[in-house]
Design a protein around this nucleic acid. Structure first.
Length: 512
RNA sequence: GGGGCCGUAGUGUAGCUUGGUCUAUCACUAGGCGUUUGGGACGCCUGAACCCCGGUUCAAAUCCGGGCGGCCCCA
């Protein structure tokens, strides 16, 4: 226990030490990631100025440092989407009740968490309006008007929007909030084959975004029947695994088959002038992923951000003394210009009223990947000190034309190192299991179980009820896994693998 | 779904058991001035708080009821 008794008459020395540690603990994080994961996260997102709590429970303010991350997602993922020919558009926030309830499974899946608008000004509305929990229904109402002939297909639209799902479970900033931001792609095709191909393509964009922007590895796979999207034929997902031993769904891509086409009457005339229903997909990537990125990489000193999403990639801290002051300021200002000209996101911290140590701690808390220190001593030696946020390494680098290059290379190395560490953790966390006991044991040790399962809804629901362990997905890539034969049994029902009731390898885990 | 803990300035807290000089503690923080600055500098000055509603009482941060919000554990 820390000694809180700084008021009593202790020696001066003890007192100042106690004050010093108090000060430190108030500015930085007071718990470690290991000892209290959720408290650590709560402090981190507030002290690193990512999130502010709002007056509405479950709704959070994205401050500039976190909104910047979302802007990078929009640029990168948005680029992948539009490069493939999908067009951006925008549909209304409000959905009339009659539209929302058109597809049965869909309503059933969302009914419990829809927020409704019932009055406008002082008058009650004739029909209540749902605040969109997702936009299938409002978009497909238009699709049925726009699609007449095979010539109108494929129709592929995307929108960047906010949605509201009135959660009753505990909300957590980024990971589960009542309002969140996302992109939702909604497409219609003449054939199932085209739709299947696109659903997989979207999943790959998501995996790529996780890897290239967030330095986070994912498990690509298909969800179980009880975990699939309400109204979908099947759902593909990328799952990630957080350092507290819990999995979290990263993003999803749904093949809707013709379910919505039937409900919304989306038909086209084929080459033989016959009416056909379209095949559809919807796929989405949300601000939840920002939370995954933060939780994955950050440490007890604060935020660790992959360079590609860091608002500030390099911070320059001039070390100012009376002697050599002007020279140091001139040198750091010159360096700032050079790095900025090279396209780096750089900040020159020349505040006069903070000590160097204070600045180091502050920028580490805020997750800046590289810190450059430059003082009179460095200037004499024609060098700078470069500190890496991910490893804590600090080394001297010559102050010459090559410095920009060195920094750029180091930023790449930081990204790769973060990805490697996370991949290592993920692959070490997947335990191949055969029996229910194996699975329980793996989960108890904060791992993911990979186990043969028959996929039945009933067995999953009973197991979930009993243990709060859910299926995550079944891997799309089964290379390296033993082929399932009649010798394998479903870990829940005990049934053996046959052609009639095929088993599949499935990831199971505790999940957010 | 079940159980437990908690809510006091921007942050972390003292005070609550036993209601009363509480005109609310301490530290950080914020703003100002000056001296400083190689891993959270120092001095002085100035700001800033009892979650909400109701009840008990001469008197409520403190007791009671309800609400809202947060955290933890179990299923």
């Amino acid at each position: 226990m820390a000694n809180p008794d700084s008021k009593s008459n202790q020696s001066k020395q003890n007192k100042s030490q106690s004050n010093k540690s108090d000060r430190k603990s108030n500015l930085g994080l007071t718990v470690t990631k290991e000892e209290n994961f959720s408290e650590w996260y709560t402090q981190l997102i507030q002290k690193a100025e990512l999130i502010e709590y709002s007056p509405v429970s479950g709704c959070y303010i994205l401050r500039p440092r976190s909104y910047f991350i979302w802007e990078q997602v929009r640029n990168y993922l948005g680029g992948l989407i539009t490069d493939d020919g999908v067009q951006n558009s925008y549909f209304p926030l409000f959905i009339p009740e009659s539209l929302l309830t058109k597809e049965e499974d869909h309503v059933e899946g969302f009914a419990a968490e829809v927020a409704w608008v019932e009055t406008g000004g002082h008058s009650k509305l004739k029909e209540r309006l749902a605040v969109r929990p997702t936009s299938e229904t409002v978009m497909y109402d238009s699709y049925s008007k726009w699609i007449r002939s095979y010539k109108d297909l494929p129709l592929r639209l995307n929108q960047w929007a906010n949605v509201v799902r009135w959660e009753f479970k505990h909300c957590t900033p980024f990971l589960r909030s009542r309002e969140f931001l996302w992109q939702e792609g909604h497409t219609a095709f003449a054939t199932k084959k085209e739709a299947d191909e696109e659903a997989l393509k979207a999943l790959n964009w998501y995996a790529q975004t996780f890897k290239e922007l967030f330095a986070v590895p994912t498990l690509k796979g298909q969800k179980s029947d009880s975990e699939k999207f309400a109204g979908a034929d099947y759902t593909l997902s990328v799952e990630t695994f957080l350092p507290d031993g819990k999995a979290i769904q990263g993003a999803t891509s749904h093949h809707l088959g013709q379910n919505f086409a039937k409900a919304f009457d989306i038909k086209f005339k084929d080459h033989h002038e016959k009416d056909q229903l379209v095949f559809q997909n919807s796929w989405g990537f949300t601000t939840r992923t920002i939370g995954v990125c933060i939780l994955m990489h950050s440490d007890d000193k604060g935020l660790v951000l992959p360079p590609k999403v860091a608002q500030t990639q390099v911070v320059i801290v001039p070390l100012l003394f009376k002697k050599g002051r002007e020279e140091v300021l001139a040198a750091t200002s010159k360096l700032y210009d050079e790095l900025k000209a090279a396209g780096l996101r750089v900040h020159l911290d020349n505040r006069e009223d903070q000590s160097a140590g204070f600045k180091y701690n502050e920028w580490e808390l805020k997750g800046v990947p590289i810190r450059i220190e430059l003082g009179p001593r460095d200037l004499e030696n024609k060098q700078v000190m470069m500190a890496r946020r991910d490893t804590g390494d600090k080394l001297s680098v010559p102050l010459d034309n090559n410095l920009t290059k060195v920094i750029e290379t180091t930023l790449t190395k930081i990204h790769d190192n973060l990805y490697e560490k996370a991949s290592d953790y993920l692959s070490k966390s997947i335990i191949q299991c055969e029996t229910k006991d194996d699975v329980l044991n793996a989960i108890k040790n904060k791992k993911i179980a990979l186990v043969p399962w028959c996929g039945s809804k009933e067995s999953e629901e009973a197991f979930k009820e009993e243990t709060s362990i859910k299926s995550l997905n079944t891997p799309l890539d089964t290379k390296g896994l033993p082929e399932l034969t009649s010798k394998h049994n479903c870990f829940l029902t005990g049934e053996s693998h046959t052609n009639k009731t095929p088993l599949r390898w499935f990831h199971f885990g505790k999940s957010y």
